[in-house]
Simulated assay, not measured.
Amino acid sequence: MTSDTVGFLDILLLISFSSLFSLGGGNGPLAIIQDRWVNSGLLEPSLFSWALALGYLSPGPKAGFLSGIGYYMYGLPGALAAIIGIILPTLVGAGAVTYWFDRLQPVIKRISLPAGFVIAGMISAAAWNLAKPIALTPIEIGAILAIAIWVGWRSPEPAFIVLGAAGVGLAGWMLA
């Protein structure tokens, strides 16, 4: 521990606040912790780096390093405060999403079919722009349309589509 001035509540609040910026990983709290505790001398830079390295090397979410920071700041209660600070915003966010998803489900059902056509149109436009310079023959265009109709009709497993496309590409490359 490097500080007697940072307590359980301080760690809990700072980690909870910084976890709000951690969409998709644990990198959000880095700048806040560095600014608040490392730059002010409350946490030694070497301990900050060590907790970060251990957290990134260990399995699990990247936010695991925060428990090490909490431990260095206030011992086991600090580690517990950090873990609660990681979990609390996630629970509140998940609860809010669940609440609003249930309320918005009729709207989502109403717009999902038209949205599917919009998405299909956007994908088709992007695919056409990518395929246009390739100069496909009418047979190749027909094969692509047949596969697109088959995919829309049967909804096969996406892995089979990718593996089939890779196999056709490999066969075409080997024959050329």
Rank of each mutant, 00 (worst) to 15 (best):
82 A>W: 12
145 L>Q: 02
122 M>E: 02
19 S>H: 12
39 N>C: 03
108 I>D: 04
176 A>G: 10
13 L>S: 14
155 S>W: 14
163 L>V: 02
118 V>C: 10
8 F>R: 01
52 L>P: 05
93 G>Q: 05
78 G>P: 06
16 S>I: 11
52 L>S: 02
19 S>K: 12
76 L>D: 00
44 E>Y: 07
50 W>C: 10
129 N>C: 09
83 I>A: 14
173 W>K: 01
18 S>L: 01
127 A>C: 07
147 I>W: 03
138 P>Q: 11
17 F>S: 12
49 S>K: 10
49 S>I: 08
79 A>Q: 10
113 L>W: 09
108 I>L: 15
174 M>E: 05
174 M>G: 00
85 G>W: 06
159 A>W: 11
68 G>N: 02
90 T>H: 03
172 G>H: 02
153 W>R: 10
78 G>D: 04
113 L>A: 15
59 P>C: 10
136 L>Q: 11
66 L>R: 07
47 L>F: 08
47 L>H: 11
34 Q>V: 03
157 E>F: 02
17 F>N: 13
55 G>S: 01
20 L>M: 15
94 A>S: 12
134 I>M: 14
22 S>W: 11
77 P>L: 01
150 W>T: 03
84 I>Q: 02
23 L>T: 12
114 P>L: 05
28 G>Q: 11
79 A>P: 08
92 V>G: 04
119 I>E: 00
34 Q>C: 04
59 P>Y: 04
79 A>D: 07
96 A>D: 08
156 P>V: 05
151 V>P: 04
92 V>C: 08
7 G>Q: 07
35 D>W: 07
23 L>N: 01
63 A>I: 14
148 A>C: 03
168 V>I: 08
93 G>A: 15
107 V>Q: 13
5 T>W: 13
127 A>I: 05
80 L>S: 07
41 G>M: 01
97 V>F: 13
130 L>M: 13
62 K>H: 10
10 D>F: 05
115 A>E: 05
61 P>V: 09
33 I>V: 05
2 T>P: 03
172 G>M: 04
107 V>R: 14
26 G>K: 10
5 T>N: 14
9 L>Y: 11
99 Y>G: 08
125 A>G: 06
116 G>K: 14
11 I>L: 08
95 G>V: 06
88 L>P: 06
45 P>V: 01
166 A>Y: 13
110 R>G: 06
124 S>M: 15
5 T>P: 03
165 A>G: 00
15 I>D: 04
22 S>N: 01
97 V>L: 11
